[in-house]
Design a protein around this nucleic acid. Structure first.
Lengths: 230, 230
DNA sequence: GCGTTTATTTATCAGCTGATAATATATCGT
DNA sequence: ACGATATATTATCAGCTGATAAATAAACGC
């Protein structure tokens, strides 16, 4: 602490400091951003029962300063939720999935390449799981997004792939759940990796490729039964 | 509190009380069991950052009494872990899965019927997820059990099913991960149900049936590629 | 029945935790 | 260079939380 105070008082402008920003006074926007990013990292690790003092320590600021930018801890937690969950969904993925110039297999593999890069990160998955255990409403909202945006589109492509020419009939719950067994299997691979920290020598995208191949090969015979309700 | 004290002082032995045990003095074994069961229910709901006072309140006992039976909160938590995770695995499942008189499809469906009844319960799944986020070593141990007991057996049956006569060669990581896409997909269905509390009108076992059918149908062509490494 | 044993409660502590008020200090306009 | 403004720190509080010690009361042995 004394060394920090010293360097602050002396104000060494020559060395930009070894670890990024050592500037003591930031603009409100910068500071807020820094706090949120730090909070994401910290809460992803410790959960939302993590303490404001420990967070401030990691940020290199004092604990009361948090309360200049956020009215309460819950306020900060809400901003973390919002930041992490918002804007992860890329609408362009729908165009990719519907691009019938590519084989469905390639579209799905490419989708999971991009989707996993956007969401299968430790901080996203861990905060997603922490949220699910304490405040499932957020996860419910996310799952609704998936059910509204992704699943109907994929299921219609699946129908075509399996030789079902009906594109009009609404995609049923059974169809969506059927597809979700693939989606969930892939997601759970990431959970094992990022939450349980299983060291896995198996290549993620390689595994996705096999899973998609297997799903599509089986779907040719099974999906029509799902659509017709057996 | 006053009514409780009154009934205790008056000692009404006639009415056995509406809600199970209202007996104030239990044997150490009974009390310990009661505390652990209550702790499982409470920590499954609130997570392991739940407070000992709230737990004791739900148990209808005072908070210091917990410390007569458990040296510390961590001690109690460890017992909860132990109780929840221990003895969930039924070795007979291996016999079921290897019973070649039944079609593999039926074996797998029956296995997931029994396995889900034993483990896909709110308290198990939620504690499993809480544990994973804070103390993944327990989950790692459980996953090791699955990799040691379940996966090699299933993968060998799968080899036979797909016309691969090799039963000697050690089951590879790739094979196990390949099967895990089915296993994880089914598990994640339960996670969505018990953790995110998604109300799902789709029948669980019906969904399992389709998932297994799909997996096996696809495996006929894809699994040989997994075994051979493409 | 009476004294011993032991399960349970009451009282209490020390450290933690979110939050606020008062104080200090860096930055900016002039 | 200086005062105004706003950022950041120090000091501090009230309630919570795990844990312990002393007091109470139910059950048990003889």
């Amino acid at each position: 602490m004394s060394s920090k105070t010293a360097s602050k008082t002396k104000a060494k402008p020559a060395s930009e400091a070894k670890l990024a920003q050592k500037k003591s006074r930031l603009s409100p926007a910068e500071r807020e951003h820094q706090i949120i990013q730090g909070a994401i990292a910290y809460f992803a690790e410790a959960g939302f029962s993590g303490q404001t003092r420990e967070l401030s320590k990691r940020l290199g600021i004092t604990q009361p300063l948090l309360y200049r930018y956020f009215a309460s801890k819950q306020d900060l937690v809400d901003r973390v939720y919002q930041t992490v969950f918002e804007g992860r969904w890329n609408p362009q993925w729908l165009a990719l999935l519907q691009d019938r110039d590519l084989p469905l297999r390639e579209r799905l593999v490419e989708f999971y390449r991009q989707y996993s890069a956007a969401t299968y990160r430790p901080e996203w998955i861990r905060i997603y799981m922490y949220a699910g255990l304490s405040t499932p409403s957020l996860n419910q909202r996310y799952i609704k997004l998936i059910r509204r945006e992704l699943l109907p589109v994929v299921c219609r492509e699946l129908r075509l792939y399996c030789g079902i020419d009906d594109q009009a009939t609404k995609v049923s719950n059974e169809e969506m759940e059927f597809y979700w067994s693939l989606h969930g299997g892939i997601f759970y691979f990431a959970v094992r990796h990022h939450v349980y920290q299983i060291k896995n020598p198996v290549d993620f995208m390689g595994n996705v490729g096999f899973a998609v191949d297997n799903f599509l090969a089986g779907a040719k015979t099974v999906y029509p039964r799902v659509v017709s309700g057996r």
